[in-house]
Amino acid sequence: MKLIIGGTAQGKLEYVLLKYDVQKNMVWDGVLPNDRKLNKNIVVINHFHQWVKSRMVSGGCPEDEIMSFLDCNEDCIIICDEIGNGIVPIDPFEREYRERTGRILVQLAMRAEEVERIICGIGQKIK
């Protein structure tokens, strides 16, 4: 698994599409594919933070769900906005959302074979 992080509108998806020659129809936007084993194509999960938020809203457990997804799709690329670099929000849900997303990303970064941070469309390999 490769993890791509960075601020919003930094060209993360374009970077991935270009670098890994991924088919656009293999990009999942804010959702995980239901079909657990998607033959040999590389799956890209874009806007991963939105998926985390939607799972939280539905009362799911994004921490466990993403790990079991990865058990079946070890070769995927996960793209996520950096959302933790701000003033701690007053709203408790927003606070929890940032905290949990950050902690999930730490787990993903540990599991990833490569972590890149995208700034101004440029990738900086940090792992």
């Binding site: 950096e82 933790g84 670099n85 701000g86 701690v88 606070r95 940032r98 905290e99 949990r100 997303t101 950050g102 902690r103 990303l105 730490v106």
Partner: peptide, 12 residues
């Protein structure tokens, strides 16, 4: 030695 560690919420 002085070390400054910075990061966002949940960054570790």
């Amino acid at each position: 030695m002085m070390v400054l560690v910075v990061g966002g919420s949940g960054s570790g």
